[in-house]
Structure formats: C-alpha cells, structure tokens
Design a protein around this nucleic acid. Structure first.
Length: 273
DNA sequence: ATAAGGCCCTGACCGC
DNA sequence: TGCGGTCAGGGCCTTA
C-alpha cells in the first residue's frame, strides 16, 4: 500500500516526466474517484492546466499547476499513477491526455483513492500531524503525543494526526527496529523507547525511499508501482511485514501475526516484548 | 477527548 | 471447474 516512501518516490519520479506537461483532454471513466470539485466540473477545470510543481504531505501527493491550483492525489490502498502511451489498463478511472502525446492514467482496483482539484490544498491536509522529517517532529514531540494514551502503539502510529505518512508496513517495521511490542499501550513507552521508536521511524522511511518503496505483487494485488510501472524494492528488506511464520532475521523465532486496530500486525515475539 | 467498530470496494484465496 | 464465503485495508464516520 502506498505510504510515505511510495508517495515520495512518485513525486521524485513524476517531476522530470510530468514537469511542464499540459493537460489537453480529460476522460473521467468513474466519477466517484473525484473528491472535489463536483465531477462534472473537474474535467473542464483541469483541461489546459500545466504541471509545474511536485511535492508531498503525508501520503497525499501534491501536483502543483501553473495556475497555482493543485491536483491532490491520495492513492489509499491500490491507487496507481501510470505515465504511459497506449490503451489504459483495467480499473483505470481517469485519463489525462498530455500535449506531448503521453497519457497519465489513474488506476485503482478497489476504488478507495481520491483526487481533489483545489485552489488551496490546506483544508484537505488540515488534520495531518507533523511530517516525520520535519525538525519539529522530535522524540520529545512524539513522547508528548503518546502521553496518557491507552491505545496500542501500533494503532497510534497509523493515526495520521500523530505523525503523517506512516502506514501498516512502516509501522510494523519501525516497531521491530525499536524492539517494541505492537500491542503496548502508547502511554506506557519509556522515554528511551520513544527515542528508539522515533529514530526507527525515520530509519525505515529513509530506507524505503532509498529502495523506491515497497511493492507487494507476488501474492495479492500489485498495489504499488512507480510511474513507469516498475516495482519498488523495499519489500526485499522487510523484517516482519507479511513474514508470518518465517524466521526472525535476528533470532530465528517465527514471526507472529495479530490484529490491532483492524489491521494485520507482524512482529517477533522474542525481539519485541 | 479517546477508543472502537463499520463502511467503502473488488481481486485473490480457500474449502467444498 | 465452479461457486460462495472471507479477507485486506486508509481514511472517514458513527457510536459509546
């Protein structure tokens, strides 16, 4: 599932490919994908716009246009952006024809993803917590948000109001690196553990970005790929995520799976107590 | 304010 | 081979 490293990879790889390109035609095949404005006006407002700026906030992709408007994209579970020629793949819901002959496809098998075309993206992003790489996101700030919380640390890491961009994959991997059991109540973490978790979050996100994200395609849906369709590589470095029953890379104990906050959670029962 | 559960979707997978 | 049931899961909404 696209989380911060996957969205960051999109931003970095789309910038040179899409920068300066102009939208000449919009085909909206499934209007439900448009969150704002009304689907009937979305296409008309996007035609003629030129992509000039590329950034990210949490798991939201921000495609800045020459008009100063922004096309905001959230891929949720299975959303993908593909910059290609030729016929659209199955589950394509939006096609942007570009002036250079290329096409930008928005594809999403489960239809969870959404796009916004807005003058100001701030309201869309209003509920997000700090960016993990923002200097304001310090161990002390993380400790303050965890203080008194009874919910599991896994559930809290998935809450985008605490820190933006961490999803199921990187939450599990960060908790393993920090040697913290995912079911621990957030408020019970000791200061030293919060420090470990803070640096583990930054570490796994950085490693994910360095590997161009995680693609899970061998079993289950191919739910993330880079703009040209190539997979990321971080799944090769998973310590726990979707490794249920496989030996822990540190101690050989079989990785276990449990359900927290309605999300599958993977951990080593020996390394994470 | 916090926590928990339901909902949206549909391909993959499992058991029969 | 075919079929029905179950699962996954981010963000939003409702409920307690």
């Amino acid at each position: 599932m696209p989380e911060l490293p996957e969205v960051e990879t999109y931003v970095r790889e789309l910038a040179p490919l899409l920068g300066g390109r102009q939208v000449t035609q919009v085909q909206l095949l499934w209007p439900g994908v448009i969150a704002a404005p009304a689907a009937s006006t979305f296409a008309a407002q996007l035609v003629g716009q030129r992509f000039v700026h590329f950034s990210r906030r949490g798991k939201y992709m921000l495609l800045g246009l020459a008009s100063s408007w922004t096309l905001v994209v959230h891929l949720r579970m299975t959303g993908r952006l593909l910059l290609q020629n030729g016929s659209p793949p199955s589950h394509t819901h939006l096609i942007l024809q570009l002036e250079n002959g290329q096409q930008l496809f928005y594809q999403d098998a489960r239809k969870f993803g959404r796009l916004w075309l807005v003058a100001d993206p701030a309201p869309v992003l209003a509920k997000l917590g700090p960016e993990p790489f923002d200097p304001l996101f310090t161990p002390q700030a993380l400790a303050a948000t965890l203080a008194g919380r009874q919910a599991s640390i896994k559930a809290l890491l998935l809450d985008q109001r605490l820190v933006a961009g961490v999803g199921n994959i990187y939450a599990d991997e960060a908790l393993f690196r920090a040697a913290i059991h995912p079911a621990r109540a957030g408020g019970t973490l000791l200061p030293a553990e919060v420090d470990l978790l803070h640096s583990a979050i930054l570490q796994v996100l950085n490693e994910g970005i360095a590997s161009a994200g995680s693609s899970l395609g061998t079993s289950g849906l191919q739910n993330y790929s880079r703009p040209g369709g190539a997979p990321g590589g971080f799944q090769e470095q998973f310590n726990v995520f979707r490794r249920t029953g496989a030996p822990c890379r540190h101690c050989d104990t079989p990785i276990q799976r449990l359900l927290l906050a309605q999300r599958s959670t993977h951990f080593c029962p020996r390394c994470q107590r």
